[in-house]
């Protein structure tokens, strides 16, 4: 984004300054697509812009194919679902995270096509959405470029292979894992959409710790970071499927 656009956006902020002051129901990011996001992704259900929902990411995309994003929810009870979306992406919905028996923390990487708000919306059991997020500046090209595995032609050799590492830190266990998948958006010329649809994170006793539903904007060979209770029964399994019916069935060894 150049200085003129910065100034323009700043001017937009200034023009909405008084409004924001008066009520918290107005989109603090002043996105042109907020209303449509509210109806399309949040079903026009009640929304509270809430500081307890935090998106952490750089303010600009050095690599629009791999923008690191973490979502963290603090002091909010009865979380049912956390939806991540990017208002101005060609495909807005990025991910849905249902933390059943797990901390409401998740990190991953996304593809973006242009500057956009990136938001997390947390639905609590009372049916309201708690929304947080910030603007990401990007020059684009992340969604319409073919995946590297597609370009190299060798993606099928490693499809759904999982590598992982885990750590114990301050009463918490952390797992990071990578699932090999091209995650093609369908927006690159002649390459159909091909992406992981969802996976469950299951402990050794069979209980589902979390469900993660993934959409096309998740980066190629997605990497996820989760914090789990260290008493969780190991090993943990990942069970899921992509939009072509390929199964994910992997055990996180360590």
């Amino acid at each position: 984004m150049n200085k003129f656009q910065h100034t323009f956006i700043f001017a937009l902020y200034v023009s909405c300054f008084n409004f924001c002051f008066a009520t918290s129901q107005v989109d603090p990011l002043d996105s042109p697509s907020w209303e449509s996001m509210h109806s399309k992704i949040l079903n026009n259900e009640p929304v509270i812009f809430d500081d307890r929902v935090q998106i952490s990411m750089p303010d600009f995309a050095e690599d629009p194919m791999n923008v690191p994003v973490s979502v963290q929810v603090n002091n909010l009870e009865n979380i049912e679902e956390i939806v991540i979306f990017a208002d101005l992406n060609p495909i807005q919905k990025v991910l849905s995270f249902q933390p059943f028996h797990i901390k409401p923390y998740l990190s991953f990487r996304i593809k973006v096509e242009q500057s956009t708000p990136v938001r997390a919306a947390v639905r609590t059991s009372d049916g309201s959405w708690h929304v947080g997020g910030s603007w990401l500046e990007a020059a684009g090209g992340g969604c319409t470029a073919p995946s590297q595995g597609r370009a190299a032609g060798n993606w099928h050799e490693t499809l759904m292979n999982v590598s992982s590492r885990s750590w114990i830190k301050n009463e918490l266990g952390r797992v990071r894992f990578r699932i090999m998948h091209p995650m093609d958006t369908g927006l690159a010329d002649g390459i159909p959409e091909f992406y992981l649809e969802y996976f469950d994170v299951v402990d050794a006793g069979g209980s589902v710790l979390a469900k993660i539903t993934t959409y096309q904007p998740i980066s190629e060979n997605p990497v996820f970071t989760l914090d789990i209770n260290k008493e969780i029964l190991k090993p943990i399994n990942l069970l899921g499927v992509d939009n072509n019916g390929n199964r994910l069935n992997a055990q996180i060894e360590n």
Partner: peptide, 11 residues
Amino acid sequence: EHGLDMTEVLA
């Protein structure tokens, strides 16, 4: 190596 994700490294 200590398990930090990219956003944590940025911070």
